[in-house]
């Protein structure tokens, strides 16, 4: 009779063990034995010693409690963060750091989005860049040296390649340097598809001369752009917007170039009207839409005129 199992603790324990091992075998052990759980994208690189040191800081400080590192294949999410995450992007992640909560934004694609200077300033005092931010300040990490000796042992433990020079260079790096290097390493294994252009080349600002557009542009500027370009737009992390210089060359640029710079951001060596960008401007097209971007162009033009 089946009821006797409740009088036989050892038999009972065996049946329970078998019971829990069935689900375990199907959902955990079996997938582990198949290649689908061990994919690696072709242009995925192991972490450098500095990046790994930064990843260790990311773990130590519990950053993963507030930031995720996986973009879901949902329309708004891809717009906000970039291409959705692929299984083959995480082959060197021991442990994975996908996280489970977005108190801050996802950072799977943050690498290259901002300049190093932006990151230092932001870690130092997040509220300088985002007034409403509740992220703790991490400027104190600049007073902590990376432990070069430990770094070598850690690289060896994970089997990542490194050079002697790379290790020697670690000795004058701080934990903040390492953390910034880690931020910049994130999310490059998947090629970033260019978005179809939002306007045609040569388009002129349809809102030119509209004073309401200047006011609207000023509002958008203050909320989103002032942190990097300064409240007076005289430049800080990003360049001065009130002068005649555009992308390091003095001389006028078309409305369309201003539009594209705001909408798509800049990457190193991108070309705009023969000018070469150094990179570091994030793309805002997904957030602002055409009208707000043209308003911004109006606002920038209004400042130029005052000069």
């Amino acid at each position: 009779m089946a009821g006797t199992i409740y009088k036989k603790p050892i038999l009972f324990a065996v049946v329970v063990t078998v019971g829990i091992l069935i689900g375990t075998a199907v959902m955990m052990v079996f997938p582990m034995l198949t290649p689908q759980m061990h994919p690696k994208l072709q242009n995925l690189n192991p972490y450098t010693a500095l990046q790994l040191a930064g990843r260790d800081v990311y773990q130590e400080e519990g950053c993963f409690y507030c930031h995720t590192q996986t973009v879901r294949p949902l329309k708004a999410e891809v717009m906000r963060y970039g291409e959705y995450s692929k299984a083959g992007e995480f082959a060197y992640d021991q442990p994975f750091l996908w996280g489970s909560k977005r108190t801050g934004p996802d950072i799977a694609r943050v690498g290259g989005k901002y300049t190093d200077k932006w990151h230092y300033k932001h870690f130092n005092d997040p509220r300088k860049l985002f007034q409403g931010s509740n992220m703790p300040s991490y400027g104190w990490l600049a007073d902590r040296q990376v432990d070069a000796k430990a770094a070598e042992a850690r690289m060896n433990a994970l089997g990542f390649p490194y050079t002697k020079e790379e290790m020697a260079a670690l000795s004058d790096k701080t934990k903040l340097d390492a953390l910034v290097a880690y931020m910049q390493s994130l999310g490059h294994a998947v090629p970033r598809k260019p978005r179809p252009p939002m306007i045609a080349k040569g388009d002129m600002n349809p809102l030119a001369g509209d004073m309401n557009a200047v006011a609207e542009g000023k509002k958008v500027y203050e909320m989103n752009c002032a942190a990097c370009h300064g409240v007076d737009a005289k430049g800080d992390i990003g360049p001065d917007l009130t002068d005649k210089e555009w992308l390091y060359v003095v001389g006028p640029v078309g409305d369309d170039t201003l539009f594209f710079t705001i909408a798509d951001g800049t990457k190193k060596d991108m070309e705009f009207e023969g000018r070469r960008a150094k990179g570091g401007m994030p793309s805002w097209g997904e957030f602002f839409g055409k009208k707000k971007i043209w308003s911004l162009v109006s606002y920038i033009r209004s400042m130029e005129e005052k000069e």
């Binding site: 582990m32 995480f90 442990p95 994975f96 994970l158």
Partner: peptide, 19 residues
Amino acid sequence: VGLFKSYSIFAGVNDANIE
């Protein structure tokens, strides 16, 4: 790696599934 640090023996997607 030393007394105070270790790395998961699992990686990426597989590590996530096990976790």
